[in-house]
């Protein structure tokens, strides 16, 4: 089982986290189009390689984390607190 290096708690089993998904900007609700909004809701790049994603450490610090992970190797290049930017 892969370890995720939580900036607050240190390396923890991936099962302690909830995978939130690929991180992307939320379109402006006032001006968005159905095409743009549904791309935001449903379409993900799912690359074989580095990807920016959000994880929630539900069984630990209960913080949302911005994680950069290589999906080919599971190497985590960075993991920081989404709100404060705190890194380990």
């Amino acid at each position: 089982m892969m370890l995720l290096p939580c900036p607050w708690c240190g390396p923890r089993n991936a099962t302690e986290f909830r995978y939130v998904g690929e991180a992307g900007p939320r379109p402006d609700p006032a001006s968005t189009t159905p095409e743009e909004w549904r791309r935001y809701l449903f379409m993900h790049a799912n690359p074989c390689g580095p990807v920016k994603e959000t994880w929630y450490h539900r069984a630990g610090c209960r913080r949302y984390l911005a994680v950069e992970r290589d999906t080919a190797t599971n190497e985590v290049r960075s993991a920081v607190d989404s709100a404060t930017g705190v890194a380990r």
Binding site: C9, T15, R58, A59, G60
Partner: peptide, 10 residues
């Protein structure tokens, strides 16, 4: 002190 999962309970 730490927080983790014990027997599937946080």
């Amino acid at each position: 002190a730490l927080r983790t999962s014990l027997a599937a309970v946080v």
